[in-house]
Design a binder for these strands. Structure first.
Length: 428
RNA sequence: GGAGGGGUGGCAGAGUGGUCGAAUGCACCGGUCUUGAAAACCGGCGUGUCGCGAGGCACCCAGGGUUCGAAUCCCUGCCCCUCCGCCA
């Protein structure tokens, strides 16, 4: 959520900044609601003050043994006036909040102009795609031909967009998770954390998935009598970031860096027909997520640092990749700036997203009321959140299968992973 | 699943209809004293919101209700604790 004060005081600048993501802020609607809010709030609070002081007087009179009947008569019509004012204010506040919650974050100055993925700007490239002297196969062919990847059985068990892995490929998948967690905890200063994979609405609101993106989530059929509604997490970002919802962190505890491995569940409602083959786009996948809670003046630097941490994984695995900065039109709702890391996939002859690293500044923190105590002011202030995948495990697996495929149909294991595979050098 | 007991400021813990945004203790911050520290003493010390300001308003788990007035009474939900049962 953006700062309501900023919108009130400088709505034109905010609206102009949002045009970079092709979002049109309804200035008229906002101002109309805001003006009503202001006068109604002043009126309501005046009535409340009146009620409070009269009630106090009644209390005093009663204590003094006086007759309070005349005082009660005086206060009679105040009550109904106040009730209607409060009700109007509540309704108005609710629509104002709704409007406010729908406004996306303001893109950073670094974010390039553009409408779609095609307008993202490449800023870096690492590694040289291997030249193959045999026909390149995709991960589906590679994995199924050795009987260790199975989409048909997965479809039987559940449905489309799921996978079953067997033997060495399943082990490789697990090895990747261990490897990533180890690197981030021992070399990059992250604290490992384990969290629930089912969250409530408040958590999803905090990170910005709700109310706008409910269609992308799996909602659990919970007891209709209960008011609680549960969802499967679309990313560990949700539970991990919400650890500090409604909390005030001591300055000495900053920055907080957490790494979390979790499954992710996405209904991918808007993507039918895209990447239907293989495990590029699944309803369930594993991810190692990096989350940082930092001082406001440190979030820009933290994003660069975190992106480096994710890149390190690709480099250690010797997978060629490039880094792009998302253009305004491709930027996610809550982010001010996002880098995507894209790994080389030989079968597609292109780079595909394997990590997304974003700075949210105080946008999520405001929704979550996640604060830190600024020692300079002594006051609680919103902190900044930064996160990114480090990395998406399923897609990393695909990248290894494809980039390390051999002419004989086997797959070489990247050197650094061999220790995590009991010394195994090759999958066949 | 059954039976009880609870959710109050950073923590502990009073408060059961009025002058309570909330006693007290601890912690914390500032000061006095001290060569320095500790102790003692003095002062300060929740959050949000509206307002140029004085100040107002809201918040005692959450949402409703009763009342002139609710931390306090009623209803619903959530969460925690204890005991029994079941269980990886």
């Amino acid at each position: 959520m953006l700062d309501p004060k900023l919108i009130r005081s400088d709505i034109n600048t905010v609206a102009a900044a949002l045009t970079k993501r092709h979002y049109t802020l309804d200035i008229e609607a906002f101002n109309a609601l805001e003006n009503q809010r202001k006068s109604l709030q002043i009126e309501t609070e005046a009535l409340q003050a009146e009620r409070n002081s009269r009630s106090k007087n009644i209390g005093k009179a009663k204590a003094a043994g006086e007759d309070i009947a005349p005082l009660l008569a005086e206060v009679d019509d105040l009550k109904s006036k106040l009730e209607s004012a409060e009700q109007q204010l509540n309704t108005l506040q609710a629509s104002l909040d709704e409007l406010l919650q729908q406004i996306p974050n303001i893109p950073d100055a670094d974010v390039p102009e553009g409408h779609s993925e095609a307008d993202n700007v490449e800023i870096q490239r690492w590694g040289e795609p291997k030249a193959f002297d045999f026909p390149v196969r995709d991960h589906v062919d590679i994995g199924t031909s050795i009987g260790q990847l199975d989409f048909d059985v997965a479809a039987k068990l559940t449905g489309s967009r799921f996978a079953v892995m067997h033997g060495k490929i399943a082990q490789l998948h697990r090895a990747l998770i261990q490897f990533m967690l180890n690197v981030h905890t021992t070399e990059h200063g992250y604290q490992e954390v384990y969290v629930p994979f089912i969250v409530n609405k408040d958590s999803l609101f905090g990170t910005g998935q709700l109310p706008k993106f409910e269609a992308d989530l799996f909602k659990l059929n919970t007891d209709a009598e209960k008011s609680s509604e549960f969802y499967l997490i679309p990313t560990a970002e949700v539970p991990v970031t919400n650890i500090f919802r409604d909390e005030i962190i001591d300055a000495a505890q900053m920055p907080q860096r957490m790494v979390c491995h979790s499954p992710c569940f996405r209904s991918e409602a808007g993507s039918y027909g895209r990447d239907t083959r293989g495990m590029i786009r699944q309803h369930q996948f594993e991810k190692v997520e990096l989350v940082q809670f930092v001082r406001p003046d440190e979030s820009d630097g933290a994003l660069e640092q975190l992106r480096g941490h994710a890149q390190t994984i690709l480099e250690k695995l010797e997978l060629p990749y490039r880094t792009v900065i998302l253009c305004g039109g491709d930027l996610g709702f809550s982010a001010v700036k996002t880098y995507d890391l894209e790994v080389w996939l030989p079968s597609q002859d292109t780079y595909r997203e394997i990590s997304s690293c974003s700075n949210f500044r105080d946008f999520q923190a405001r929704r979550m009321k996640a604060r830190w105590r600024n020692p300079d002011t002594g006051k609680p202030e919103l902190l900044h959140t930064v996160n990114g995948s480090g990395l998406a495990v399923g897609r990393t697996l695909i990248a290894i299968l494809e980039n390390y495929q051999q002419a004989d149909g086997s797959i070489q294991i990247p050197e650094i992973l061999q220790a995590y595979m009991n010394g195994c050098e090759r999958i066949a």
